[in-house]
Nucleic acid binder design. Sequence first.
DNA 1: TGCCGCGATGTTATGCTATAACGTATTGAA
DNA 2: TTCAATACGTTATAGCATAACATCGCGGCA
Lengths: 137, 137
Amino acid sequence: MAHSHDVPGDLTRNQGLVLGALNHSESPLSAYDILDKLRGDGLRAPLQIYRALDKLVERGLAHRLESLNAFVACADEHCHRKGLIAFAICEGCGKVDEFADSVIEERLGRWAGAKGFKVERTTMEIRGKCEACVAAA
Amino acid sequence: MAHSHDVPGDLTRNQGLVLGALNHSESPLSAYDILDKLRGDGLRAPLQIYRALDKLVERGLAHRLESLNAFVACADEHCHRKGLIAFAICEGCGKVDEFADSVIEERLGRWAGAKGFKVERTTMEIRGKCEACVAAA
DNA sequence: TGCCGCGATGTTATGCTATAACGTATTGAA
DNA sequence: TTCAATACGTTATAGCATAACATCGCGGCA
Protein backbone atom coordinates (compact mmCIF):
# COMPACT_ATOMS: atom_id res chain seq x y z
CA MET A 1 0.00 0.00 0.00
CA ALA A 2 0.88 3.65 -0.21
CA HIS A 3 2.81 5.06 2.70
CA SER A 4 2.89 8.56 4.06
CA HIS A 5 5.85 9.66 2.02
CA ASP A 6 4.27 9.08 -1.33
CA VAL A 7 4.24 12.02 -3.59
CA PRO A 8 2.06 13.11 -6.49
CA GLY A 9 3.24 11.70 -9.78
CA ASP A 10 3.09 14.94 -11.69
CA LEU A 11 5.91 16.72 -9.95
CA THR A 12 9.02 17.62 -11.85
CA ARG A 13 12.29 16.00 -10.90
CA ASN A 14 13.46 18.92 -8.78
CA GLN A 15 10.12 19.31 -7.09
CA GLY A 16 10.09 15.62 -6.25
CA LEU A 17 13.58 15.73 -4.81
CA VAL A 18 12.81 18.76 -2.67
CA LEU A 19 9.55 17.33 -1.38
CA GLY A 20 11.32 14.06 -0.66
CA ALA A 21 13.93 15.86 1.40
CA LEU A 22 11.22 17.60 3.41
CA ASN A 23 9.28 14.37 3.91
CA HIS A 24 12.30 12.59 5.29
CA SER A 25 13.12 15.32 7.76
CA GLU A 26 11.84 15.40 11.31
CA SER A 27 12.01 19.14 11.43
CA PRO A 28 11.87 22.15 9.14
CA LEU A 29 14.61 22.69 6.59
CA SER A 30 15.90 25.92 5.14
CA ALA A 31 16.36 26.11 1.40
CA TYR A 32 20.10 25.82 1.95
CA ASP A 33 19.65 22.77 4.18
CA ILE A 34 17.71 21.16 1.37
CA LEU A 35 20.35 22.13 -1.14
CA ASP A 36 23.02 20.44 0.93
CA LYS A 37 20.97 17.24 1.08
CA LEU A 38 20.48 17.24 -2.67
CA ARG A 39 23.96 18.01 -3.94
CA GLY A 40 24.43 14.29 -4.52
CA ASP A 41 21.45 14.42 -6.89
CA GLY A 42 23.04 17.09 -8.99
CA LEU A 43 21.44 20.19 -7.58
CA ARG A 44 23.86 23.07 -7.11
CA ALA A 45 22.15 26.43 -6.89
CA PRO A 46 19.76 27.92 -4.31
CA LEU A 47 17.44 29.00 -7.07
CA GLN A 48 16.78 25.41 -8.05
CA ILE A 49 15.52 24.81 -4.54
CA TYR A 50 13.54 28.03 -4.25
CA ARG A 51 11.80 27.43 -7.55
CA ALA A 52 10.73 23.96 -6.51
CA LEU A 53 9.62 25.24 -3.11
CA ASP A 54 7.51 27.94 -4.72
CA LYS A 55 5.57 25.37 -6.66
CA LEU A 56 5.20 23.02 -3.73
CA VAL A 57 3.95 25.76 -1.45
CA GLU A 58 1.61 27.00 -4.16
CA ARG A 59 0.09 23.52 -4.38
CA GLY A 60 -0.10 23.11 -0.63
CA LEU A 61 2.36 20.22 -0.58
CA ALA A 62 4.75 22.17 1.57
CA HIS A 63 4.48 25.10 3.94
CA ARG A 64 6.76 27.98 4.66
CA LEU A 65 7.38 28.82 8.31
CA GLU A 66 7.91 32.55 8.33
CA SER A 67 9.34 32.73 11.79
CA LEU A 68 12.07 30.22 10.90
CA ASN A 69 12.69 31.03 7.26
CA ALA A 70 12.27 27.33 6.71
CA PHE A 71 9.95 24.81 5.12
CA VAL A 72 8.07 21.64 6.05
CA ALA A 73 6.14 19.08 4.06
CA CYS A 74 2.41 19.31 4.53
CA ALA A 75 1.32 16.97 7.28
CA ASP A 76 -1.85 16.00 5.47
CA GLU A 77 -0.92 13.23 3.04
CA HIS A 78 -3.59 14.06 0.61
CA CYS A 79 -3.33 17.78 1.04
CA HIS A 80 -6.97 18.44 1.62
CA ARG A 81 -6.31 21.43 3.76
CA LYS A 82 -7.55 24.56 2.16
CA GLY A 83 -8.06 27.09 4.90
CA LEU A 84 -5.97 28.63 7.57
CA ILE A 85 -3.33 26.39 9.09
CA ALA A 86 -1.58 26.98 12.37
CA PHE A 87 1.83 25.62 13.31
CA ALA A 88 3.22 24.84 16.73
CA ILE A 89 6.98 24.87 16.61
CA CYS A 90 8.97 23.32 19.44
CA GLU A 91 12.13 25.22 20.25
CA GLY A 92 13.47 22.15 22.01
CA CYS A 93 13.36 19.41 19.43
CA GLY A 94 12.40 21.46 16.39
CA LYS A 95 9.35 19.40 15.55
CA VAL A 96 6.34 21.11 14.08
CA ASP A 97 2.73 20.27 14.67
CA GLU A 98 0.18 21.44 12.16
CA PHE A 99 -3.47 22.06 12.89
CA ALA A 100 -6.55 23.93 11.74
CA ASP A 101 -9.17 25.68 13.80
CA SER A 102 -12.36 26.81 12.18
CA VAL A 103 -13.29 29.07 15.08
CA ILE A 104 -10.09 31.04 14.69
CA GLU A 105 -10.64 31.18 10.97
CA GLU A 106 -14.12 32.47 11.54
CA ARG A 107 -12.90 35.13 13.98
CA LEU A 108 -10.31 36.39 11.55
CA GLY A 109 -12.87 36.43 8.79
CA ARG A 110 -15.19 38.45 10.98
CA TRP A 111 -12.50 40.99 11.79
CA ALA A 112 -11.54 41.29 8.14
CA GLY A 113 -15.15 41.67 7.08
CA ALA A 114 -15.71 44.47 9.56
CA LYS A 115 -12.61 46.30 8.36
CA GLY A 116 -13.14 45.70 4.66
CA PHE A 117 -9.81 43.92 4.55
CA LYS A 118 -9.45 41.33 1.81
CA VAL A 119 -7.48 38.39 3.17
CA GLU A 120 -5.15 36.62 0.82
CA ARG A 121 -2.99 34.56 3.12
CA THR A 122 -2.59 34.06 6.84
CA THR A 123 0.31 32.77 8.83
CA MET A 124 -0.05 31.63 12.39
CA GLU A 125 2.92 30.21 14.25
CA ILE A 126 3.20 29.31 17.90
CA ARG A 127 6.67 29.03 19.37
CA GLY A 128 7.21 27.12 22.57
CA LYS A 129 8.01 23.67 23.87
CA CYS A 130 6.24 20.44 23.10
CA GLU A 131 5.08 18.15 25.86
CA ALA A 132 8.11 15.85 25.60
CA CYS A 133 10.58 18.73 25.78
CA VAL A 134 8.79 20.34 28.72
CA ALA A 135 8.96 17.02 30.54
CA ALA A 136 12.64 16.59 29.71
CA ALA A 137 13.53 20.03 31.07
CA MET B 1 -0.21 67.62 25.67
CA ALA B 2 1.58 64.45 24.82
CA HIS B 3 1.14 63.24 21.30
CA SER B 4 1.13 59.75 19.91
CA HIS B 5 4.80 59.73 19.11
CA ASP B 6 6.02 60.24 22.61
CA VAL B 7 8.44 57.72 23.86
CA PRO B 8 9.41 56.43 27.28
CA GLY B 9 12.12 58.49 28.88
CA ASP B 10 14.30 55.61 29.93
CA LEU B 11 15.35 54.51 26.50
CA THR B 12 18.97 54.74 25.47
CA ARG B 13 19.93 57.09 22.67
CA ASN B 14 20.00 54.36 20.03
CA GLN B 15 16.75 52.86 21.19
CA GLY B 16 15.09 56.26 21.10
CA LEU B 17 16.34 56.94 17.60
CA VAL B 18 15.16 53.60 16.31
CA LEU B 19 11.75 53.89 17.92
CA GLY B 20 11.46 57.39 16.55
CA ALA B 21 12.16 56.16 13.05
CA LEU B 22 9.47 53.50 13.40
CA ASN B 23 6.98 55.97 14.83
CA HIS B 24 7.43 58.32 11.93
CA SER B 25 6.96 55.68 9.32
CA GLU B 26 3.62 54.80 7.76
CA SER B 27 4.69 51.27 7.10
CA PRO B 28 7.08 48.64 8.42
CA LEU B 29 10.80 49.21 8.15
CA SER B 30 13.58 46.68 7.83
CA ALA B 31 16.60 47.07 10.05
CA TYR B 32 18.51 48.35 7.03
CA ASP B 33 15.77 50.85 6.20
CA ILE B 34 16.09 52.18 9.73
CA LEU B 35 19.85 52.32 9.46
CA ASP B 36 19.60 54.42 6.33
CA LYS B 37 17.30 56.86 8.08
CA LEU B 38 19.65 57.19 11.02
CA ARG B 39 23.02 57.58 9.32
CA GLY B 40 22.68 61.31 9.85
CA ASP B 41 22.50 60.66 13.57
CA GLY B 42 25.77 58.83 13.56
CA LEU B 43 24.60 55.25 13.35
CA ARG B 44 26.63 53.13 10.94
CA ALA B 45 26.32 49.44 11.60
CA PRO B 46 23.36 47.04 11.34
CA LEU B 47 24.14 45.69 14.77
CA GLN B 48 23.41 49.03 16.37
CA ILE B 49 19.93 48.81 14.92
CA TYR B 50 19.35 45.16 15.74
CA ARG B 51 20.43 45.65 19.32
CA ALA B 52 18.03 48.52 19.80
CA LEU B 53 15.24 46.58 18.09
CA ASP B 54 15.79 43.61 20.38
CA LYS B 55 15.22 45.75 23.42
CA LEU B 56 12.24 47.54 21.95
CA VAL B 57 10.57 44.29 20.94
CA GLU B 58 11.34 42.79 24.33
CA ARG B 59 9.56 45.71 25.98
CA GLY B 60 6.64 45.59 23.59
CA LEU B 61 7.37 49.02 22.15
CA ALA B 62 7.93 47.56 18.72
CA HIS B 63 6.88 44.40 16.92
CA ARG B 64 8.64 42.21 14.46
CA LEU B 65 6.66 41.15 11.40
CA GLU B 66 8.03 37.74 10.55
CA SER B 67 6.52 37.55 7.12
CA LEU B 68 8.21 40.80 6.10
CA ASN B 69 11.45 40.65 8.05
CA ALA B 70 10.54 44.13 9.17
CA PHE B 71 9.46 46.07 12.23
CA VAL B 72 6.71 48.44 13.33
CA ALA B 73 6.18 50.58 16.39
CA CYS B 74 3.50 49.26 18.70
CA ALA B 75 0.18 50.86 17.85
CA ASP B 76 -0.83 51.14 21.47
CA GLU B 77 0.71 54.34 22.79
CA HIS B 78 0.97 53.11 26.31
CA CYS B 79 1.83 49.60 25.39
CA HIS B 80 -0.75 47.89 27.47
CA ARG B 81 -0.99 44.96 25.18
CA LYS B 82 0.21 41.81 26.82
CA GLY B 83 -1.36 38.93 25.01
CA LEU B 84 -1.47 37.71 21.48
CA ILE B 85 -1.46 40.37 18.81
CA ALA B 86 -2.51 39.91 15.21
CA PHE B 87 -1.38 42.03 12.30
CA ALA B 88 -3.14 42.75 9.04
CA ILE B 89 -0.62 43.77 6.43
CA CYS B 90 -1.80 45.48 3.25
CA GLU B 91 0.20 44.45 0.20
CA GLY B 92 -1.06 47.52 -1.60
CA CYS B 93 -0.05 50.43 0.61
CA GLY B 94 2.08 48.59 3.13
CA LYS B 95 0.13 49.78 6.13
CA VAL B 96 -0.28 47.49 9.09
CA ASP B 97 -3.26 47.21 11.36
CA GLU B 98 -2.77 45.70 14.78
CA PHE B 99 -5.46 44.01 16.80
CA ALA B 100 -6.10 41.53 19.57
CA ASP B 101 -8.77 38.89 19.82
CA SER B 102 -9.37 37.12 23.08
CA VAL B 103 -11.40 34.37 21.45
CA ILE B 104 -8.50 33.43 19.21
CA GLU B 105 -6.18 33.58 22.15
CA GLU B 106 -8.47 31.31 24.09
CA ARG B 107 -8.69 28.82 21.20
CA LEU B 108 -4.94 28.64 20.89
CA GLY B 109 -4.60 28.21 24.63
CA ARG B 110 -7.10 25.39 24.51
CA TRP B 111 -5.25 23.61 21.72
CA ALA B 112 -1.95 24.03 23.54
CA GLY B 113 -3.40 22.78 26.80
CA ALA B 114 -4.76 19.67 25.14
CA LYS B 115 -1.40 18.94 23.54
CA GLY B 116 0.72 19.79 26.54
CA PHE B 117 2.45 22.43 24.44
CA LYS B 118 3.93 25.33 26.39
CA VAL B 119 3.40 28.52 24.40
CA GLU B 120 6.11 31.15 24.58
CA ARG B 121 5.28 33.42 21.70
CA THR B 122 2.74 33.54 18.90
CA THR B 123 2.84 35.33 15.61
CA MET B 124 -0.25 35.90 13.55
CA GLU B 125 -0.06 37.84 10.31
CA ILE B 126 -2.73 38.35 7.71
CA ARG B 127 -1.64 39.39 4.25
CA GLY B 128 -4.10 40.98 1.89
CA LYS B 129 -5.49 44.32 0.84
CA CYS B 130 -6.96 47.03 3.01
CA GLU B 131 -10.31 48.56 2.20
CA ALA B 132 -8.82 51.62 0.51
CA CYS B 133 -6.57 49.54 -1.72
CA VAL B 134 -9.37 47.17 -2.67
CA ALA B 135 -11.48 50.17 -3.64
CA ALA B 136 -8.64 51.69 -5.65
CA ALA B 137 -8.06 48.50 -7.64
C1' DT C 1 38.37 57.47 46.17
C1' DG C 2 39.19 53.57 43.66
C1' DC C 3 37.75 49.16 42.13
C1' DC C 4 34.49 46.28 39.92
C1' DG C 5 30.62 44.57 37.32
C1' DC C 6 27.29 45.21 34.02
C1' DG C 7 24.99 46.87 30.21
C1' DA C 8 25.23 49.79 26.12
C1' DT C 9 28.10 51.02 22.39
C1' DG C 10 31.22 50.91 18.25
C1' DT C 11 33.52 48.33 14.54
C1' DT C 12 34.93 44.71 11.42
C1' DA C 13 34.03 40.64 9.44
C1' DT C 14 31.14 37.03 8.20
C1' DG C 15 27.16 33.96 7.46
C1' DC C 16 22.53 32.97 6.06
C1' DT C 17 18.39 33.92 3.11
C1' DA C 18 16.51 35.22 -1.35
C1' DT C 19 16.21 36.97 -6.04
C1' DA C 20 17.78 39.30 -10.63
C1' DA C 21 19.13 38.42 -15.12
C1' DC C 22 20.48 35.68 -18.55
C1' DG C 23 20.39 31.63 -21.60
C1' DT C 24 18.94 26.72 -22.77
C1' DA C 25 15.83 22.77 -22.91
C1' DT C 26 11.47 20.53 -22.96
C1' DT C 27 6.75 20.15 -23.67
C1' DG C 28 2.39 20.64 -25.72
C1' DA C 29 -0.99 22.84 -28.59
C1' DA C 30 -2.40 25.13 -33.00
C1' DT D 1 6.57 22.99 -37.85
C1' DT D 2 6.24 26.85 -35.18
C1' DC D 3 5.12 29.13 -31.20
C1' DA D 4 4.17 29.82 -26.34
C1' DA D 5 4.64 28.34 -21.86
C1' DT D 6 7.12 26.29 -18.40
C1' DA D 7 11.09 24.19 -16.27
C1' DC D 8 15.90 24.17 -15.86
C1' DG D 9 20.92 25.69 -15.15
C1' DT D 10 24.34 29.22 -13.91
C1' DT D 11 26.49 33.42 -12.25
C1' DA D 12 26.15 37.31 -9.77
C1' DT D 13 24.17 40.15 -6.43
C1' DA D 14 20.88 41.94 -3.01
C1' DG D 15 18.94 41.79 1.56
C1' DC D 16 18.74 40.12 6.43
C1' DA D 17 21.21 38.90 10.72
C1' DT D 18 24.85 37.78 14.01
C1' DA D 19 29.78 36.50 15.83
C1' DA D 20 33.63 38.30 18.05
C1' DC D 21 36.15 41.65 20.18
C1' DA D 22 37.27 46.22 22.16
C1' DT D 23 35.63 50.32 24.63
C1' DC D 24 32.89 53.32 27.39
C1' DG D 25 29.96 54.94 31.19
C1' DC D 26 27.63 54.43 35.19
C1' DG D 27 26.09 52.48 39.57
C1' DG D 28 27.31 49.88 43.75
C1' DC D 29 30.43 49.21 47.28
C1' DA D 30 34.78 48.19 50.01
